[in-house]
């Protein structure tokens, strides 16, 4: 079969809403695109453990401590599911992690913002996970089978993350004036970065069109961002928090919120490595990896010895 035939058959399969499986023929670009996107997604889960993990030891009650620990643990699980999905495309986890640690791979820029107060743990669950879920629900229907299956599992587990975050803020808003101020401050700092999570506007997004054609992505960045805003604004109002956007206004005719302008300069700066915590996040990951090297080596050495003894 010629390359063109392969390509046409492949597109036909995608158009017919059949999933692509690991051993199927696929365009080299599709494979590359997927490895990039899935590994970025996996890196985001793993780096995303850091700003929240930062508060496990300071959680203000034993109940909150257990919930947060279980939640951050889930992120590790989600990173693992995603690395596994990417590995079906022929790239090893070690290779993907090497790229991250070498600074060659991206991860969601939201995790380069600092978690400064306990309310930030609420804001991360409510806003960051809320934004992530909108993206992830779409990705449950992505064309690549292993990615889609990983996303289904992740979405199932993720649903409590969003709620526990909102629950933290609900409690703070019912609390002392200091607690309420803490909640508002967190919203003020996390709102715009959360909107940036959906990526550049479709017209400026380099990968969007091809990803849509291959049904890796199924909805545009702007559309998803609007869904998030429409859902989240009433949730903020319900607990008496003010979204930090003076242009935010319900539009009767479109049945959507109109809203202000994202500071794309900030977005690009953070992506370039100039966010408030880029250096710290990478340093933490590198340290964990380097300090774990002897552990991973020992386990492998022991497994080899044991296998040899068994064979002898």
């Amino acid at each position: 079969m010629s390359a063109q035939d392969n390509e046409a058959l492949f597109q036909q399969r995608v158009d017919d809403e059949q999933k692509v499986e690991p051993r199927d023929w696929m365009p080299a670009e599709y494979r590359k695109n997927l490895v990039r996107q899935i590994s970025q997604h996996a890196h985001s889960e793993v780096v995303g453990m850091l700003p929240e993990g930062n508060w496990i030891t300071r959680a203000p009650s034993l109940r909150r401590k257990a919930i947060l620990l279980a939640k951050v643990q889930d992120e590790a699980g989600h990173g693992l599911y995603l690395y596994s999905a990417a590995e079906t495309l022929g790239t090893g986890r070690d290779e993907m992690i090497d790229q991250l640690l070498a600074g060659k791979a991206k991860y969601s820029s939201i995790f380069n913002y600092p978690s400064l107060t306990w309310a930030d743990i609420g804001a991360i669950g409510w806003l960051v996970d809320g934004a992530a879920i909108i993206n992830q629900v779409m990705l449950c229907r992505t064309s690549y089978g292993p990615y889609s299956r990983a996303m289904v599992r992740i979405c199932k587990e993720e649903s409590f993350h969003n709620r526990q975050g909102y629950d933290i803020l609900v409690t703070l808003c019912k609390g002392t004036p200091a607690q309420k101020a803490m909640a508002q401050d967190a919203l003020d700092r996390w709102w715009w970065p959360s909107l940036m999570m959906f990526g550049p506007s479709d017209k400026d997004s380099p990968h969007s069109a091809q990803s849509m054609k291959w049904k890796i992505k199924r909805q545009g960045n702007d559309e998803l961002r609007q869904v998030f805003i429409d859902r989240t604004v009433p949730q903020a109002e319900l607990i008496g928090l003010k979204v930090p956007d003076p242009k935010l206004k319900w539009n009767e005719s479109t049945q959507h919120y109109d809203w202000g302008e994202i500071n794309w300069e900030e977005f690009h700066q953070v992506i370039q490595g100039n966010g408030p915590c880029n250096a710290e996040r990478m340093a933490a990951r590198r340290k964990a990896h380097a300090e774990g090297a002897w552990v991973r080596e020992a386990a492998l050495a022991y497994a080899e010895k044991k296998a040899k003894r068994k064979a002898a």
Binding site: V46, M49, L50, G53, I56, L69, V72, Q73, A76, G79, L80, Y83, A284, K287, A288, E291, G292, A293, V295, R296
Partner: peptide
Amino acid sequence: CGHAPVLEE
């Protein structure tokens, strides 16, 4: 949590 030698751990 977040700093272990390998994700599984």
